[in-house]
């Protein structure tokens, strides 16, 4: 009898993930993220060896982060959509449309009469509006996210081209005063660009939202098992709309960062952002099937890509080589994750 009890206890221990330190750690999000940190550290070592001081300088670190900021903000939004079981291919096009719309505004008389924050508001509203359209048609029109956002990708960029007449709109080109906008975004706080701070703030808000709020819990539920979420009383359709609005807002913020950095709005802005963002999210350990993912992982994914880009540039390697390498990294990361995932699900 006591032998039996011992067996049962052992079985209970064995099936308990918390009791398998090494493997369990790799399966947890913390462990996976630790793996990403190690990868990032290795990449930095490569950078330091190949480019020396040019890589390790503080200035360069800021360059990397500046590079990461725009795509990073988009990726945070993308993380939510993907955890919620969707995908958004239109983020790049939304960035373009937002940038064009808010710079059009800035070049018109209207801008003279209103505060520069109007631009900020417009960019975010345009992003939210596109997201709302995506969300409503996906949730209530039952259009597959892939198709709906593909359509938005085409339409939003098309609209951006119409509004801008395919011309690059230079901020304040018509003599309007946009100094307030420029001053705000080109400022440094504690020696760090505002754009980097904005990325950091968006990431922190994203983390809190995902891990500490009902919104985050619902996102995981909706993505992990939509039927169970629905039968548990969660309004899955409404939540889906929120998710696409959220990623749209992120795209709007990214558009502002891009406008500030380039001082232009253009229908070519944000080209292929959707792929960079999805790549960063996937590298960060978020499942494309939904239901699981972390903000920290996404941030690390973004940093890994921007650091790599930086190293390639410092070593005068071509953009093509960079792309080739990026592809290889994505495949390697996903293969690794699948291994871990398959180990954790077999019983």
């Amino acid at each position: 009898m006591s032998h039996d009890t011992a067996r049962v206890e052992r079985a209970a221990l064995e099936t308990d993930r918390e009791y398998n330190p090494a493997l369990a750690l790799l399966r947890t999000s913390v462990g996976r993220n630790a793996g990403l940190v190690v990868a990032l550290a290795l990449i930095c070592v490569v950078g330091a060896v190949s480019a020396g001081d040019r890589f390790t300088s503080t200035d360069n670190a800021l360059t990397v982060l500046r590079l990461a900021a725009t795509i990073g903000v988009v990726s945070i939004g993308m993380t939510f959509v993907i955890i919620g079981g969707g995908i958004d291919l239109s983020v790049g096009a939304i960035v373009a449309l937002s940038s064009v719309w808010c710079t059009t505004l800035a070049s018109q008389q209207f801008a003279e009469d209103s505060h520069w924050t109007m631009m900020v508001l417009i960019a975010i509203l345009v992003g939210a509006g596109c997201g709302l359209v995506n969300g409503l048609l996906i949730a209530y029109g039952n259009i597959v996210p892939f198709i709906m956002t593909l359509a938005m990708l085409a339409s939003a960029r098309g609209l951006a081209e119409i509004i801008s007449d395919k011309k690059t709109q230079i901020l304040g080109a018509k003599g309007t005063d946009v100094s307030g906008f420029k001053d705000f975004f080109n400022r440094e706080i504690l020696g760090v660009d505002v754009s980097i701070w904005i990325f950091a703030i968006v990431a922190v808000i994203g983390w809190v939202l995902l891990n500490r709020t009902t919104f985050g819990r619902r996102t995981v539920a909706v993505g992990g098992n939509p039927e169970a979420a629905r039968l548990a009383g969660i309004n899955v359709k409404r939540h889906t709309v929120y998710l696409y609005v959220l990623v749209g807002v992120c795209a709007g913020i990214a558009a502002l960062l891009l406008v500030a950095r380039t001082t232009t709005g253009s229908s070519t802005h944000g080209n292929l952002y959707e792929l960079d963002a999805i790549a960063a999210v996937v590298i960060g350990g978020t499942l494309l099937t939904g239901g699981r993912g972390t903000i920290v992982g996404t941030v690390l994914g973004v940093l890994i890509f921007s650091t790599l880009t930086n190293i390639f540039i410092l070593n005068n390697r071509s953009f093509s080589e960079q792309s080739l390498f990026k592809g290889a990294i994505i495949v390697a990361a996903v293969l690794l994750q699948q291994r871990l995932a398959s180990r954790s699900t077999t019983t």
Binding site: A221, N225, A228, A229, A232, G291, R292
Partner: peptide
Amino acid sequence: SQALLLDEAVYK
């Protein structure tokens, strides 16, 4: 398939 979030913690 209809009730549980299998990968999530029991309390959730």
